[in-house]
């Protein structure tokens, strides 16, 4: 009856819900666009994390010229991850609320 929420994968496969402010449909039809919305922006967070990781490896092997490059990238990755996590939990809450409204 209830369409399953897309599973949360490994830590690195975080899926932010960038456009989920207005769930377009409460029923199964809304499930498809909900999954799309969960998937949207996934690449952005992945990209930010792996960019920060790459710069961290450069810093570790002494090849990074400017340390602020790494700290800025790490801050961006941390903020995007936090935002993704927050949006996802709010989206799950909203989804469950709407689901609970159905008979």
């Amino acid at each position: 009856m209830t369409t399953p929420i897309a599973p949360i994968g490994a830590i690195s496969a975080l899926t932010p819900t960038a456009g989920v402010a207005a769930p377009t449909g409460a029923g199964p039809a809304g499930g498809a666009s909900f999954a799309d919305a969960l998937g949207r922006g996934f690449d952005a967070v992945q990209g930010a994390q792996s960019n920060a990781d790459g710069l961290a490896v450069q810093a570790a092997s002494g090849q990074l010229t400017d340390p602020s490059q790494y700290t800025i990238a790490a801050t961006q990755a941390a903020l995007m991850t936090q935002m993704a996590t927050t949006l996802e939990s709010k989206a799950v809450t909203a989804f469950n609320t709407i689901m609970g409204m159905q008979a």
Binding site: I11, Q49, A56
Partner: peptide, 15 residues
């Protein structure tokens, strides 16, 4: 710099 980097990596997981 590097201990901060490791801390922020663990911080992402914790978040």
């Amino acid at each position: 710099l590097l201990t901060g980097a490791l801390t922020s990596k663990y911080g992402l997981i914790s978040t």
